[in-house]
Design a binder for these strands. Structure first.
Lengths: 156, 156
DNA sequence: TTTGTTATGATAATTATTATCATTATCAAA
DNA sequence: TTTGATAATGATAATAATTATCATAACAAA
């Protein structure tokens, strides 16, 4: 938290912006929530403790956090942009359950390595990447055991 | 083309829907274009040769093609849903240039294999997945050579 | 303080997509 | 073939997420 505030402060100073009460409070709230929040969800939480803060400011601050490296914008296909914590979080990928919406994070260095290999081969310089695997989580797998095939993915 | 039309026909019969002039024409046009088109782009192309076809029908038909397995909906982060050809196309991933928007496809069986490994470990059954790598393509890399760092990606 | 911005909140505007609805087209059965 | 039930269409209104606008307030430096 202290560290994150420093990062924001540094970015703000660098860009000659201003560190406002709202920005600090939105950052705090963002960090206190679990990752993958939408602007609307964050706004609701922020409003609880400070109803004076507007939705537009939440959107603006989320962009600011993205640019300063504290958050990462992502779309998981439900129509709204979601924001992940992006400081002191090593890169990770996602297992997304299409049944219950549960998101599990995982890391796999070897996959990362292979991606670099591909980038090199294409003279492509990687800025970031996303690997999302969609399917049924352990629990939902169990529920539908009788009629769910176990590996419906397309061969590659 | 023949095969794709058969698939659509089969799906339509199965669901007791109707094979209309519009649906056939939209499918044809979709297949004639490069992959990763948006509804708007497809509509524009369709309109050229048949201005009577409405935008809503293009949207509806794209959903139909998705359900029948001829197209796959995807979001690449530019705000609109894009549709890929999804018949007789083996699974592939994407290198997406954040500068010029160019999308290059690639395949890497080893990465696929590692994903299955992770899924197994989490008792997760894969339905599909997406791996998108964002960065600068060969050409854009060259353009900004003087001030673009070559590997801005975060370590995993 | 004053002064010159930048940020905010309320809300209008925009954009992509979906829903509505009167009219038309399809298709199976007579 | 006609017919009749109903699915599909086109035009457009509605929705939802996000962005722009703008008058007012807050900040930071002199």
């Amino acid at each position: 938290m202290k560290k994150e505030k420093d990062i924001l402060q540094h970015y703000i100073a660098h860009k000659r912006l201003r560190l406002t009460r709202q920005r600090q409070f939105i950052l705090e709230t963002f960090l206190s929530m679990e990752s993958h929040v939408s602007a609307e969800e964050l706004y609701k939480e922020v409003s609880k403790r400070d109803p004076s803060i507007g939705l537009a400011t939440v959107y603006r601050t989320l962009h600011l956090l993205s640019k300063s490296g504290l958050a990462q914008e992502r779309q998981f296909g439900d129509g709204q942009t979601r924001y992940e914590h992006d400081f002191n979080h090593s890169h990770h990928d996602h297992l997304i359950c299409t049944e219950c919406g549960d998101i599990t994070e995982f890391e796999h260095p070897m996959i990362e390595r292979l991606q670099e290999e591909i980038a090199d081969r294409n003279k492509f310089s990687i800025y970031t990447h996303r690997l999302d695997i969609y399917g049924l989580c352990k629990r939902c797998n169990k529920k539908g055991e009788t009629f769910m095939p176990t590996n419906r993915h397309k061969g590659g």
